[in-house]
């Protein structure tokens, strides 16, 4: 039998070209540029640059401020991803169980997703507004003087709550469709096999939901790390001095506010490496325990 051969034609490469071009222009080139400039000390006024080797990295990693931001970023990412996933899962399980009026209930829960993220972010910030924010008011009932933008921990709290709130709708949609793709008969078999709904959830429903959950963990970590940039920018009101920021925001601050292009490049290279390692870890270790049926 003859194998189909394309020979050394250029056609396959032509087909690949658009994709490669896009990746090259929007990822490889900027990434390469970041790696290059992380070895240079850029003149703040644009008058040339000096090669400094690994100095930028040394500076970044020995900087106490950087370490503080890194620790906050880890907490922020873990908390946002955890609560956004957990709350969405609870809502999805409840929505899935609703028989009457299921459609309107689901639509209500998905609405948040239909709002443009900056608008939703702004709404979240309004909720924490010092003067008119209902959450600030509610906090005051419990004697908590919530001062977003002024108190470090209060800002962190508001940031996490808003970030979680924004992400719940997306997670909800995925969890709900994941739940609905579990065959009805499998769940019914479980109902006959197991009395406790709680136990049934953890032994049958959740394991069958793991492909969705795994995907969402990756998405949520990426979200918390990168996509919360605008939110942080709005929350810190351009006064990041005493406020919590994440690593991505710090890259922006040091690079564009501090004009330290070399240091900020070194930071983004470090961040890139972290994400790279994280992705490998996720796929290597978590995916192994995921049940793709």
């Amino acid at each position: 039998m003859n194998k189909v051969r394309f020979g050394h034609s250029v056609i396959p490469y032509l087909f690949l070209l658009p994709q490669i071009l896009i990746v090259a222009v929007f990822f490889y080139l900027p990434a390469g540029e970041a790696v290059r400039s992380s070895f240079y000390l850029e003149d703040p006024f644009g008058f040339g640059s000096t090669f400094v080797g690994l100095d930028n990295y040394r500076d970044v990693l020995s900087n106490a401020e950087y370490r503080r931001v890194a620790i906050f970023t880890v907490w922020f990412t873990v908390l946002v991803a955890f609560f956004a996933l957990a709350i969405a899962l609870v809502l999805a399980v409840k929505a899935d169980a609703v028989l009457r009026g299921a459609k309107s209930y689901r639509t209500l829960l998905m609405w948040v997703y239909a709002i443009a993220p900056p608008v939703a972010g702004l709404l979240g910030i309004m909720l924490f507004d010092q003067h008119v924010g209902p959450i600030v008011k509610m906090a005051s009932w419990f004697g908590w003087n919530l001062r977003v933008g002024v108190n470090y921990h209060d800002t962190a709290f508001a940031m996490i709550v808003t970030a979680v709130w924004l992400q719940i709708a997306v997670n909800f949609i995925f969890f709900l469709s994941g739940l609905q793709s579990i065959p009805r008969s499998v769940r019914e078999a479980a109902r006959i096999d197991c009395r406790s709904g709680f136990r049934r959830f953890w032994t049958v429903t959740f394991p069958l939901l793991t492909p969705t959950a795994f995907f969402l963990v990756v998405i949520n970590i990426t979200y918390a790390l990168f996509d919360t940039f605008g939110l942080i920018d709005l929350m810190t009101k351009n006064e990041p001095g005493n406020n919590p920021v994440t690593l991505v925001y710090k890259v922006f601050l040091d690079g564009f506010r501090g004009n330290d292009l070399g240091g900020s490049s070194a930071q983004s290279v470090i961040l890139m490496a972290v994400v790279f390692v994280l992705t490998i870890v996720q796929f290597r270790f978590i995916e192994r325990r995921v049940h793709y049926s």
Binding site: P183, S185, V186, E188, A189, A190, R191, I192, D193, C194, R195, V204, P207, L208, T210, H291, S293
Partner: peptide, 20 residues
């Protein structure tokens, strides 16, 4: 009575085995 307490066993059309 809850299905799990009825002391029944059911065989489904598509088997409904737990895939995991």
């Amino acid at each position: 009575v809850d299905p799990a307490e009825r002391d029944i066993a059911m065989v489904f059309q598509n088997y409904a085995l737990y895939p995991h």
